[in-house]
């Protein structure tokens, strides 16, 4: 898929994520839009997947450690063809729905690991990478963390294991959008650079624009050439990216658009295409 197509797909996923929250009347649109481009590159370009065989042992693994951003994940699985027939209305967070408030591996086909309780993705992904090594498989494990999430100590327990075991088939993205639930990260715990921290833990680190498809692709490809270290791609992202009134307004960490806001969002995300 070329860059233009990837960009178009990312906009489709964004529309679906916003629609999901709008219809379900609950959810986290800002964090979902923040990682839309990373998720698009992974699901439509980088990852070795077969939607017809969601349990294929040789598939690449994916864990969305910041599980509250799941609307974009559900949208990607849907567009990628995991659900037959394609889902029209997700019923996000509704009773009996396939689409739980945070991803559940036993509820939703294609979800490799339950997530949502912050901080656990890197360590779980490390276990997945270790299993691949033990089984002589060459799959990659991709993990997306939030920058706020890195305040959880268990992140660094996982980072230790990954570096100590030289898990070069583990690629972690950090969604550096600078915000967390209540305030900015700087206001919450002070300024820090996740890239420096991962370097200090012995990781192979990249810093890119998280909305640049080619940069995301290039960072993944570069990471795959570096042996003996886990990889961290720190992505500068905009929370709420693509919807003008959500960008830069942390009220959209969790929130539901009104009818009018929804119409505006769809228009801005190319819904007329």
């Amino acid at each position: 898929m070329d860059t233009v197509m990837l960009q178009k797909t990312a906009q489709t996923l964004r529309r679906e994520a916003v629609r999901m929250v709008y219809e379900g009347k609950d959810g986290h649109p800002g964090p979902a839009l923040s990682i839309a481009d990373i998720v698009t590159v992974l699901f439509f370009q980088e990852m070795r997947l077969d939607p017809a065989r969601p349990d294929w042992e040789d598939r690449d693994r994916f864990i969305i450690s910041k599980g509250h951003a799941c609307p974009i994940y559900y949208a990607a699985l849907n567009e990628r063809g995991y659900f037959q027939p394609k889902v029209e209305h997700f019923a996000l967070r509704q009773l009996g729905s396939t689409f739980q408030g945070h991803p559940s591996m036993h509820s939703t086909v294609g979800v490799d690991m339950t997530s949502g309780s912050l901080g656990n993705g890197i360590a779980i992904a490390s276990g997945m990478a270790l299993a691949g090594r033990a089984q002589g498989k060459d799959y990659y494990v991709y993990c997306i963390c939030g920058d706020g999430e890195l305040q959880e100590g268990v992140c660094w327990e996982g980072a230790n294991v990954a570096a100590g075991r030289q898990l070069d088939h583990l690629i972690t993205f950090v969604d550096r959008n600078g915000w967390q639930s209540y305030k900015s990260i700087d206001e919450t715990v002070g300024r820090n650079n996740p890239a420096d921290r991962f370097r200090a833990f012995g990781w192979d680190v990249y810093e890119i624009d998280g909305h640049d498809m080619e940069a995301i692709h290039a960072a993944v490809e570069a990471a795959k050439t570096v042996k003996g270290k886990p990889h961290c791609i720190v992505c500068d992202c905009v929370k709420g990216k693509g919807v003008s009134f959500m960008e830069g307004d942390n009220a959209w960490h969790k929130g539901v658009p009104t009818d009018e806001q929804y119409a505006t969002a769809m228009k801005e995300l190319g819904g007329d295409d």
């Binding site: 690991m113 360590a123 779980i124 990478a129 270790l130 691949g132 268990v154 327990e157 996982g158 294991v161």
Partner: peptide, 28 residues
């Protein structure tokens, strides 16, 4: 040695690692 995973003094990480291993067919 390839089936022993040392996580250091880090129980939460160790349980997460085990969950990841098990999700990929190992018996930790």
């Amino acid at each position: 040695p390839d089936r022993y995973v040392e996580c250091g003094i880090a129980e939460q990480g160790a349980v997460d690692v085990a969950a990841g291993l098990a999700s990929c067919g190992m018996l930790p």
